[in-house]
Design a protein around this nucleic acid. Structure first.
Lengths: 212, 212
DNA sequence: AATTGTGAACCTCTTCACAGCT
DNA sequence: AGCTGTGAAGAGGTTCACAATT
């Protein structure tokens, strides 16, 4: 069986957003060309991406919007809820607790951890902040699927190790460090500084970068 | 002249973080192998990335940490300050205003815009929130280099158009939409939902993804 | 002995181009 | 006629392997 590239997975997320928008606006049918134009990719790319998972269109006619949306939603695993724990309630953790798109996509934040006594016991958006003392047990009791790492670099690896003991299967890591996980655990890194640094590079070396 | 790929630019950001860490911890010399191991890439990859910009190492000895750090910092355009405006003081905008790494890397947040009367006039982290009524003029007066788009999708394109009128040259876009900009403007997209959706995909289709 | 810098080989992703449906 | 699905070609990124250097 063929692996699916990160590129394809990322684009599927984007297509999904376009399809939701179209569905909300009563657009019934979409071509690969249109779906591509909304996301800055070619029609062939859209078709190749979708063809990894089946044949969802009709030749001559294009794709049915809500049909394709349902399929991509299912492919992405977004037709269910995921139980999420936030580790570290600093600015990023707070932003995520506050981020509507998480909730509406089925990511339910069940727990928030922080080791600051001033924060422990407080509630943000209905989620009580607790100490990490019993992290492993708490995570297991709540059946957490995914944990978000928003703690300082120095604490990140240890927290991840403990989360895995607690049964977490996916890690979304905001700490700018390469974290080690066993092969059966999935980790994705998100680095808020990287894109603005890429802008700094582009503005400094305009002749060295491709331009949209 | 050869273009530099986004991949290389992103990795340079990461190398920079490792080099800072090493410098702070008194490590004087680093090999491409070590620098790679800290960032999950091969030694050859590190050398190829650096070789786009010159020869910074010494055969048999490796790279001088602070020397290489200075060079990569310069290459990335991070040896100066950039004037930044934040558009939209929702959860993402607030997180960025609060984000130390921005300040320490030379990204100075000069202005924050929001159209919520309840927010206008308030100050977050020393930055006064103002109405977008005179956005073009304000942006020009403050000599803003980079604007962060943290407004709803429906407002994003218009705000970008106005920022460009005000002389902004770089856009960091958090709105999940493909924004059009003239060729001389640089835009980078950041989508907080995409990586957690990729996790959802991986957990749903473990046999379809490469695993670290 | 160790490690860089780099052309060549390799691999992966994107685009092309067209047969096959509607 | 219009558009999908897909094998083949093309473009681009990564790794190999080794000469060059300390």
């Amino acid at each position: 069986m063929e692996y699916i590239s990160d590129f394809t997975i990322h684009r599927l997320s984007k297509y999904l957003r376009t399809l939701s928008y179209m569905e909300e606006n009563g657009i019934k049918t979409v071509s690969s060309l249109m779906l591509g134009q909304h996301n800055g990719v070619t029609a062939a790319q859209v078709r190749k991406d979708l063809s990894c998972f089946g044949a969802f269109g009709r030749r001559g006619l294009g794709y049915n919007v809500s049909d394709l949306k349902k399929n991509v939603n299912r492919i992405m695993g977004l037709n269910r809820t995921w139980k999420v724990a936030i580790c570290g309630v600093g600015n990023i953790g707070r932003a995520l607790l506050d981020y509507d798109q998480f909730r509406t996509q089925g990511f339910q934040i069940m727990i928030a951890f922080d080791n600051d006594p001033a924060k422990i016991g407080k509630t943000i958006h209905g989620v009580a902040i607790r100490s990490e003392v019993n992290l492993e047990r708490d995570v297991r009791d709540e059946n957490i699927d995914i944990a978000v790492i928003a703690v300082p670099v120095s604490a990140a690896q240890l927290i991840v190790d403990r989360l895995i003991v607690g049964g977490v299967k996916g890690i979304l890591n905001f700490a700018p460090i390469n974290i080690q996980v066993p092969k059966n655990i999935f980790i994705r890194n998100e680095n808020m500084a990287i894109e603005i640094e890429a802008l700094s590079f582009a503005l400094t070396n305009p002749n060295l970068v491709h331009n949209s």
